[in-house]
Each structure stands twice: as C-alpha cells, then as structure tokens.
Amino acid sequence: MIKVKNLYHSYSKDQNYAVKDVSFDISKGELFGFLGPSGAGKSTTQKILIGLLNLQKGHIQIDGKDIKQRSRDIFNHIGVSFERPNVYKKLTGIENLQFHSEMFSVTTEDPMTLLKLVGLEDAAHKKAGSYSKGMLQRLVFARSMINKPKIWFLDEPTSGLDPTTASIIKGIIKQKQQQGTTIFMTTHNMHIAEEICDRVAFITNGVISAIDSPRNLKLQYGERFVTIEYKKTDSLLSESLSIVDEAGKKRINEIISNYTVETMHTQEATLEDIFIKVTGKELK
C-alpha cells in the first residue's frame, strides 16, 4: 500500500539530512509504527508521504501510484492527523469537522458521531480556541477520520493525552486496523506501539536501524531475564540474570545451590529496552 525507497530529505538542501536513505513497505491493512526520539525525522517522513514536503530524493508509491504523479483525488481516501493541532480557533469543534468534511467528494462521517467517539461531545459547540491541548489533539484525530480513510497517517496521536484518553484513542486505532485501514503511525510511546503495531521501524537521526514486528524484535534482541532475590547471611540480595547466555545460567545455578532463594521472576525485555539496545539511544 505504501512503498518507500531510499528516501532522503534535507531542509537546508545540502548534505545535512533530516531523513537519510529510509526504505520500508507497508502492506494493505497493516498498522506500521514509526518509533524514534524527538528530532529523529518521523514527522519529516510523514510530511513527505502526504505531500506537505517536496519529495527531494527517493521513490514513494502510495496505493500503487508514484506520488509525483498523484492527482488530488487520492486525498479522498487519505486521513491525516497532525502532531500539532491545526484547527480553526474561531470555529467550534463541530464546525471544524463540518467544514473539513465539505472538502471531500466521498461520503463522510457524521461530525457529532466522531466527536462522541473521542469524548468531545460536550465541547462540540464550544470554540476550538477554548479547548485544552488534549482536547485539540483529539479534535485533529477525529477530523482525520472524517472521510473514512483507507490510508491513515497519525503523527503522535497519543502525545499529551492522559492515560485513559490515550487508551481510548488506542482502541479506536486498533478498531480501524481491524476494519482493514492501512495505518502509518509515528510515536515515541513504546507501550502503545508494542501493544497494537503489526510492525515497527526504529528511527534515529534520520536513519532506520530495524524494522520488524515487536514480537520478532524481542525474539531477536530481547534476552530473557530472571530476577532472583536470595538471602546471604543476614542481608536480602537481588540479581538480574540472563537465562540465555552461559554466564547467566551458571550464576543462577550457583545461587540456587548456595543460598536461600526468596523470590524468582522471569522478565521479558520491553520494546523500549530493545530500542535502546539496537539504537544506543534513549527514546526521550
């Protein structure tokens, strides 16, 4: 559905690339997560995909068509949620959605239904200028669904939201994915990515260092650990040990044979651990 090959982009039009040799394929109905710290080039990539930035170098196909030759009609099937809420402050929530829906030539969703979905029904008739940051975030998110998109671009859909609201948004994304929508989502929320993405790409400094399903990444990079608490003379000690490598295994045996083990938990590496391991960078 989305094919990106050797994409480069430089804001200063020189060798100083914000996105460097990025390639990935997203198949129909897939939820693809683009993970990386701030300034990694996530939004830049999304902006090139949706045509807000010029394609300087590389090839992009969306729905089988080269984006250089696309007609504006394709936007009838594309939904975009922006990182920074860009709505009309003097229009109410519902007026914003209503106006946006008038731009499409396909049947659109009912604005009120969408506002209810994201929990904005009470604020529907208030001016967007009076909305809080999280409310604006939900408004742009709701707006991106107005044309029932086949391909959906979400730039940080959960940033700035409280956990409950974030989880509602996550549920909506999951549901759309089950209905067959192809989704490109940038985020630095590893938990959400791990939970709902079919595949993720790790990007840092404009370069992708791994692309795979969260499960495969864990299998490949994630060591399994046990945390053992044991008594040595009078003090309670705790150690985290790999159950994969030899040194770890040996140490576990030692502890079990020599001391009194109080508790023992196996622990899986999180996507966040793996991100740090693969890219050598923290996510925030």
Partner: peptide, 18 residues
C-alpha cells in the same frame, strides 16, 4: 494569516481541495 499561523492550510492541503 490565520490559516498560515494555525497551519490549517496544511490540513486543507491533504484534502482533494485544489
């Protein structure tokens, strides 16, 4: 100016609007 400042023009640029 309002469209530019609020970047709503970007939202319009990803619709079929010419």
């Amino acid at each position: 100016i309002e469209e530019k400042e609020a970047k709503t023009i970007e939202a319009l640029n990803v619709t079929p609007m010419q």
